[in-house]
Nucleic acid binder design. Sequence first.
DNA 1: TGAGAATATTTGCTACGGCAACTATTATAG
DNA 2: CTATAATAGTTGCCGTAGCAAATATTCTCA
Lengths: 152, 152
Amino acid sequence: MEAWRALVTSHAAVTERVQRALTAADLPPLSWFQMLSAVKRSPTGRPRMSELADWLTLSRGGITKLVDRLQEAGYLQRVDCPEDRRSLQAELTPAGEKMLAEMTAVYEAELERHLRTMTAEEAGLIKAALEKVTGSTCDSACDSAHGAAAAA
Amino acid sequence: MEAWRALVTSHAAVTERVQRALTAADLPPLSWFQMLSAVKRSPTGRPRMSELADWLTLSRGGITKLVDRLQEAGYLQRVDCPEDRRSLQAELTPAGEKMLAEMTAVYEAELERHLRTMTAEEAGLIKAALEKVTGSTCDSACDSAHGAAAAA
DNA sequence: TGAGAATATTTGCTACGGCAACTATTATAG
DNA sequence: CTATAATAGTTGCCGTAGCAAATATTCTCA
């Protein structure tokens, strides 16, 4: 429980620092970076809107508007999905690639600044422990759904 | 770096679950819980607005509005600060104490659900490592201010 | 003491995100 | 094949938070 509080606190603190570092460098906000890097990290390079919603833990509507802004800024474009005509895929433009690189530099520098007190072993442990948590979140969801269904 | 990504992801996932658990239980949002428990955890029990802003990592304006809502709901009240007439202190009302207890129950239950994959040792390590990060954030801020001053 | 800098909080304006309703397309059942 | 349900995405409306300006009070120093 205290560990969770520490996590929440450090998350908020570091995130705020990164935000400020980005604005100080006249760069777009963190949400843009998260979007751009999610698109970049996608196996296909062209994730669907709903995939982005899952990865960024954002609602569908939120994704629509975020992509709108990035598209208007010229960093992303929507392309029709060939397998499903309901669906759209987001794709980085060259300008988007460039911006992502710039933001990544600031982002990683700031992270390094704040996480330098952490040893590699600690980082490894944290990564492992928290990935277990995230992984099990899906199971919990199923439990939850099951429980609700049973109750209904 | 990957550890940080894991942290961000698990934070978002668990936070979202807790939010949903609270709304499912017809309780106020997570921000209210954070505010109430920050007031409760204050050494004096009557933190100032600016202390709350620091602890919740929220802007001053944000605190004003959040306290406004909690006050209107009858969970908090503002009292004049005796040492500094510019300042106000937030104080839990009996209804606020009661609500905090209710929300704490749901909050902790949900946390336990999602963090059950973590062992006590892991939790201890994470807590220690992340508290180091948060602690050093202040130093970094000083470094940063110093660097800016030197540059100017 | 008195002028001006610094600090604590609030307010107005704006941007961002969630939810529920809507459209368009695909999947399922009969 | 058609009707219905389910899914992908967008839109409108609302609540919430940040920022900069405004107000009130305290601090500094001459």
